[in-house]
Amino acid sequence: MSIQVVRTTDGWWVESGTGRLHRVDTGADTTAGLLADRSTVRPYRPGLRLDATRRVVHAELTAQGADCDPERILCRPHDGGVHVTVPALADDAVRRRVTAALDQYLLHWQYAPSKPLERETP
């Protein structure tokens, strides 16, 4: 599950599953402040955590030289935290840098298989 979060000059908004925007009543000025506002964000918190994790992982991939579409980074709830699957990287040097960077975070993560598993044909 992922929730779109929008910050405008009027405040914070979240997109529902139907595409409608709903105002979030909070005084937060930053994403961290929004996530810390438990009473306001509680219904949206799991989706916000997944979205924030995807953004941080994408920023790390980019900083380490990996060109990746953020939609290919899969984030799922896992044992009270987040499990992340990132696309396989062909360049070994970039892969080592990404591994070192992501290992510093408190999350479970893995590389996606480099190619889909093939079924055996009878």
Score class of each variant (00 low, 15 high):
Met1Gly: 14
Ser2Val: 13
Gln4Gly: 12
Gln4Phe: 12
Val5Ser: 11
Arg7Ala: 03
Arg7Gln: 06
Asp10Ala: 15
Asp10Thr: 12
Asp10Trp: 07
Gly11Ala: 08
Trp12Glu: 05
Trp13Lys: 07
Trp13His: 10
Val14Ala: 09
Glu15Leu: 02
Ser16Gly: 13
Thr18Val: 10
Thr18Tyr: 11
Gly19Ser: 05
Arg20Cys: 09
Arg20Phe: 11
Leu21His: 13
Leu21Arg: 08
His22Lys: 13
His22Gln: 11
His22Pro: 09
His22Leu: 14
Arg23Gln: 08
Arg23Pro: 07
Thr26Phe: 00
Thr26Gly: 00
Thr26His: 00
Thr26Gln: 01
Asp29Asn: 15
Asp29Phe: 15
Asp29Glu: 15
Ala32Ile: 10
Gly33Ala: 11
Leu34Phe: 03
Ala36Val: 03
Asp37Cys: 02
Asp37Met: 07
Arg38Met: 11
Ser39Asp: 15
Thr40Ser: 15
Val41Ile: 11
Arg42Tyr: 07
Pro43Cys: 00
Pro43Asp: 06
Pro43His: 04
Tyr44Ser: 06
Arg45Gln: 13
Arg45Thr: 12
Pro46Gln: 06
Pro46Gly: 01
Leu48Ile: 07
Arg49Phe: 00
Leu50Ser: 02
Asp51Gln: 13
Thr53Gln: 06
Thr53Met: 01
Thr53Cys: 03
Arg55Trp: 14
Val56Asn: 02
Val57Ala: 05
Val57Cys: 06
His58Asp: 04
Ala59Cys: 07
Ala59Trp: 04
Thr62Gly: 05
Thr62Asn: 10
Thr62Glu: 13
Ala63Trp: 07
Gln64Glu: 14
Gln64Val: 01
Gln64Ala: 11
Gln64Arg: 15
Ala66Gln: 02
Asp67Glu: 15
Pro70Met: 02
Glu71Pro: 09
Arg72Phe: 14
Arg72Glu: 15
Arg72Trp: 09
Arg72Ser: 14
Ile73Asp: 05
Ile73Val: 13
Cys75Pro: 08
Arg76Trp: 01
Arg76Met: 10
Pro77Asp: 04
His78Gln: 09
His78Thr: 02
His78Pro: 07
His78Ile: 01
Asp79Tyr: 08
Gly80Ala: 08
Gly80Arg: 02
His83Thr: 08
His83Gly: 05
Val84Lys: 01
Thr85Arg: 02
Thr85Ile: 07
Val86Asn: 00
Pro87Gln: 00
Pro87Ala: 05
Ala88His: 10
Ala88Pro: 04
Ala88Phe: 08
Ala88Gly: 08
Ala90Gly: 12
Asp91Ile: 00
Asp92Phe: 09
Ala93Lys: 13
Ala93Pro: 10
Ala93Met: 10
Ala93Asn: 12
Val94Phe: 08
Val94Asn: 02
Arg97Gln: 05
Arg97Asn: 03
Val98His: 08
Thr99Ile: 07
Thr99Asp: 01
Ala100Tyr: 04
Ala101Gly: 00
Asp103Arg: 13
Gln104Ala: 14
Tyr105Arg: 06
Tyr105Pro: 01
Leu107Arg: 02
Leu107Ile: 07
Leu107Pro: 03
His108Arg: 14
His108Lys: 09
Trp109Phe: 01
Trp109Gly: 00
Tyr111His: 13
Ala112Leu: 09
Ala112Cys: 02
Ser114Gly: 10
Ser114Gln: 10
Pro116Tyr: 11
Pro116Phe: 06
Pro116His: 09
Pro116Ile: 09
Leu117Pro: 09
Glu118Met: 12
Arg119Cys: 10
